Simulated assay, not measured.
Amino acid sequence: MLNPHPTRYAELNGVLHDLVTGAQEALGGSFVGAYLQGSFALGAGDQHSDCDFLVVVRERPDEEQEAALRRLHAELPHRGGFWHGHLEGSYAVAGDLATVAGLGREWLYVDHGSDVMSWSEHCNQPWTRWILREHGITLVGPCPVQLMEPVPDDVLRDSARAGLATLVDDVLGWCPPTVAWCQRYLVVQASRSLYTIRTGEVASKRDALRWVMVHGDPGWRPLLQQVLADRDLGLDPQAPPRPGSLEAARAYAAYVARVA
């Protein structure tokens, strides 16, 4: 039975119903289950979050199933309302998901708000798997712990540490430095990486910022407080960063890379 209240937003719950029933129709007997990971699974989802989902399939979608899924996601963002435009997720092959040996394999993926699908490893990462197994919200299907082994601490930590080496270039390569949201995103990602390296777990954006305020160098607290407070501003492509804040974000990312 489909979980009727997976989030606190009634409209989003209706969108997830549309997603799951559409995926079941497209996949037939290959459908295993559907889950929320990301911010909502960590208890931090709000109207500034995308809604990260994962649908588990028995095998890689065949040509007919893939075409049906592409039609579904081409149409979903255009149904109107707020949440139809804020889905992001993948169709995970059960065999890939079962063990960490399957990390990095490409799954059929739809980016935040997009109506075009691609094959991507975006959702097949140690941190997404950890969130799914330890905190995932089941929409329908077996509990995630029945589908996958735990993510070893060293795999999670090593992945976070490796990402810090190129974090600034990676983020500012796709997120313009002239946009305030991108400055905040850089600080958040550095904070989440540090949290994972120190704890072997994954935190929400807000919880990671608060954790570093307590456990990190106190000199960074004004920057972290600015990012935390400005989160409620959301994404405005026309809003520039506060004066000096991007430079501070770069310096903070370098600090995190050093102490990690």
Rank of each mutant, 00 (worst) to 15 (best):
R192V: 04
W220E: 08
V151F: 00
D158A: 11
P177L: 13
G219M: 00
D169Y: 11
W211G: 03
I137C: 04
L139G: 02
L164F: 14
A203C: 00
V188H: 08
P177C: 15
A190M: 11
V171R: 07
D207A: 15
R129F: 05
V155T: 09
W181D: 14
W130P: 05
W211T: 06
G136C: 05
W181P: 12
S193T: 05
R129G: 07
W220L: 04
A180I: 10
T178N: 02
P177G: 15
G141L: 07
P218N: 00
D154H: 15
C175K: 00
S193R: 13
Y195P: 01
T196D: 09
P218H: 00
D207H: 12
L194D: 08
R157C: 06
W127F: 13
E121R: 13
W211L: 01
V179G: 12
S191P: 10
C175G: 06
P150K: 00
E121F: 09
L194P: 08
T138A: 09
A208S: 06
A208Y: 03
R192T: 05
P222I: 10
A180K: 10
S118N: 13
T166A: 12
P150H: 00
A165Y: 12
Q146W: 06
V140L: 11
M148P: 02
Q146G: 06
G216T: 07
R221K: 15
G136P: 05
G219Y: 04
W181I: 14
C175D: 02
A180T: 10
Y195V: 06
A208V: 06
Q189P: 13
I131R: 07
V168A: 15
V140W: 04
H135V: 06
V179D: 13
S159C: 08
D169N: 15
L132F: 07
A203P: 05
R198T: 03
W181S: 14
H215N: 10
L224N: 03
E201D: 15
P150S: 08
P222G: 09
E121G: 10
S159I: 07
G173Y: 10
L139W: 04
L224I: 05
V145R: 13
K205D: 03
Q183L: 12
S193A: 15
E201R: 15
R198N: 07
W220I: 06
T199L: 01
Q189N: 15
V145D: 11
D158T: 09
A160G: 10
L194T: 00
G141Q: 06
A162K: 11
V155R: 01
A162S: 11
L147A: 05
R221N: 15
P218F: 09
C175Q: 04
V212E: 09
R198E: 11
V214Q: 13
L209R: 07
Q183F: 14
Y195G: 02
V188F: 04
C175A: 01
M148T: 01
Q183G: 15
R129P: 08
V188C: 09
K205F: 06
L147C: 02
T128F: 05
R206N: 11
G173T: 10
S193W: 07
R192Q: 10
P176C: 02
W174P: 01
V202A: 09
R184I: 05
H215W: 05
M213E: 10
V140M: 07
V168F: 14
P152Y: 00
